[in-house]
């Protein structure tokens, strides 16, 4: 049986193209399972997974939990909107307390970049990074690329524009790494203060005009404005942002080709994406959500084999 080259999914950085292809092939199988009348397989029976979320999350946590249940894993959930440090307990102590209850796998979301890498140095359980601050969100990038593959047949050679707050987005960074590994061309677009100064060195194109970005791409991945992650003012107002960077149906219809629109959710309707665009036939947003479960099943299944 094929195996992943890693013990943890800490980020897309660290994965090989073969790893991603293996995850996709496995997800294909699980997606088929999810469409059966009986959606459950016994693959992770006797495996206990803890979802440890130090940041608010609805869809990612639900998606992971559903994936775990479909795989017959035992699931426990720990949520804390404030970091455990503020309560006087370190991250390592919190996680070690959970592991002492004989947990095999940790799915963690945390506001600190590198926190799953830190954990990986100190604990034995498999770790899945469900988003670490402004660093990576690997399962989101995998499900995004998987959805592009599903919609367009393959990822290689496709042009993908990532639009919005690139600076604070773990989705952007993981997407760039995954798409490049799979042979896609990547462009980032947004207000210049929300683009990392050195982003070009990652081999991506940079565009400040959203219309030009849309005209260039096959797929537009529209990101959420991460107001909660901005510690400093980066742009004048949401009003100005939506006027000059917001995407609506009229803009999409004015292009000379039909492009695919994606969004990792939750959407700020009327800010980065208008309702008529989000609900149009350009959008594969709900397919992304569906694929998220299959991708997460594949990731946890494969990690449990290692």
């Amino acid at each position: 049986m094929q195996q992943l080259s890693v013990k943890h999914l800490l980020g897309i950085k660290g994965l090989t193209r073969a790893d991603i292809e293996l995850i996709f092939e496995t997800a294909d199988t699980f997606k088929e399972v999810l469409n059966r009348p009986i959606k459950k397989v016994p693959s992770l029976r006797d495996i206990t997974v803890a979802n440890v979320f130090f940041e608010n999350s609805t869809r990612t946590r639900l998606s992971f939990e559903l994936a775990q249940k479909r795989l017959s894993a035992d699931v426990i959930n720990f949520s804390s909107s404030s970091s455990s440090v503020k309560k006087g307990e370190t991250l390592l102590d919190t996680v070690n307390n959970i592991l002492a209850m004989k947990v095999d796998m940790i799915v963690m979301r945390h506001s600190s970049p590198g926190s799953p890498h830190f954990l990986a140095k100190h604990i034995k359980a498999n770790i899945v990074n469900a988003g670490d601050g402004t660093h990576e969100h690997p399962t989101q990038a995998l499900l995004d690329a998987f959805s592009i593959r599903e919609e367009h047949g393959e990822v290689a050679g496709k042009k993908v524009a990532i639009i919005g707050d690139i600076l604070h987005s773990r989705v952007a960074l993981s997407n760039i790494f995954a798409l490049q590994l799979l042979g896609a061309e990547v462009m980032v677009c947004g207000p210049i203060t929300l683009l990392p100064k050195y982003i070009k060195e990652l081999g991506v194109k940079v565009e400040l005009d959203v219309r030009k970005a849309l005209q260039w791409c096959d797929v537009a991945n529209v990101l959420r404005i991460q107001l909660e992650r901005q510690q400093i003012k980066y742009f004048p107002s949401l009003r100005e942002y939506s006027l000059y960077y917001g995407i609506n149906k009229k803009l999409l219809d004015s292009l000379d080709k039909k492009i695919t629109v994606m969004h990792p959710g939750p959407i700020n309707r009327g800010v980065e994406l208008s309702s008529d665009a989000a609900d149009s036939d350009h959008s594969i947003i709900l397919n992304q959500v569906e694929n998220g479960v299959a991708i997460r099943m594949a990731v946890m299944y494969l990690l449990a084999q290692n």
Binding site: G114, H135, L173, K197, Y198, L202
Partner: peptide, 19 residues
């Protein structure tokens, strides 16, 4: 430098750390 954690450059970009 507020909220900065490491040298600003391509590495800080890749690590998602404020430079």
């Amino acid at each position: 430098t507020q909220f900065g954690n490491m040298h600003e450059g391509i590495t800080s970009t890749m690590l998602g750390l404020k430079g």
